[in-house]
Design a protein around this nucleic acid. Sequence first.
DNA 1: CGCATTCATCGTAATATTGCAATGAAGTAT
DNA 2: ATACTTCATTGCAATATTACGATGAATGCG
Lengths: 110, 110
Amino acid sequence: MGLSKTEIFTDQQNEIARFAKAFGHPARVAILQHLFKIETCVCGDLVNEIGLAQPTISQHLKELKNLGLIQGSIEGTRVCYCIDPKNWIKMKRIMSEFLDQDISIKEECC
Amino acid sequence: MGLSKTEIFTDQQNEIARFAKAFGHPARVAILQHLFKIETCVCGDLVNEIGLAQPTISQHLKELKNLGLIQGSIEGTRVCYCIDPKNWIKMKRIMSEFLDQDISIKEECC
DNA sequence: CGCATTCATCGTAATATTGCAATGAAGTAT
DNA sequence: ATACTTCATTGCAATATTACGATGAATGCG
C-alpha cells in the first residue's frame, strides 16, 4: 500500500512522525545543519554545498518549508532560506516530549 | 530513484536520518510509547493495542529491533519486546546533538 | 530587447515503504 | 498425535520517496 493509516493514530503521534520524516533523509539533515552553521540565510550556494542536483535540493527545501522549519524569501533572482526559529523550537518541544519519555524507565526487564 | 545517496553525506548525518526514519511512522511511535507506558516488556497484545494487522506490526517491530531501539526475547509461544535503554540513550544523544544546534541562533534574518 | 542566472515545476524512472492475506515455524495443550 | 496459539516470513499490490533532465518563470544585465 505504501500509505500510512494515519487515522488510527493520535494527532500527536502523527505530528511526531511528520517531523521525524523530515529528518529522515541525510540531505535535509545536511541542509538544516548548514543553515545553522552559517548563522544567517543561505542564498544560492546550497546546491554546491550539498552534492545533489538543483531540482533535488529544491524538492527537499520545499518539504522543509511545508513543515514550517525553514522560510524562504525572494531576493532578486535568488531565494534566501533560513531556519524559522519559532517553529524549530515548537518542533523541538514536540520531539522532546517523545524522546524524553524514558524518565521513568528503570532497567532492562527481559 | 527512491534511493538516498548516502555516500555523499557524513556518517553522523546518515545516522541521524536512520533514527529519524524509524520515528517517521506513527505506528512505530505508538509502539515505542506503549512500551514506555507499561514500563515493562510487552508480550503479545501489541496487535490489539495498535490497530494494524499482525504481519504489519511484526514488520515495524523488526525495523525497531534492527536499529537496536528495542529487544525481543522468546517466552514460550510469545515474544516479549521491551526498550533497549542503552541504545535509546545513545540515540537520544545523537538526536539531541542535531536538535540542539540552535543554541547560537539569534533571530530571524530574512 | 535578447541573454544569462537562479530557482521552481513537470515528467519520468528507479527504489522504498506500507499493509495484509497466506503460509510457515515453534511452542503449548488436550 | 492433533489442534491451537503466537509470531515471523513470504509474496504481492498500492502508494511514497528520491533523483534528475527538461522546461518554465522571474529577475538582472548588456
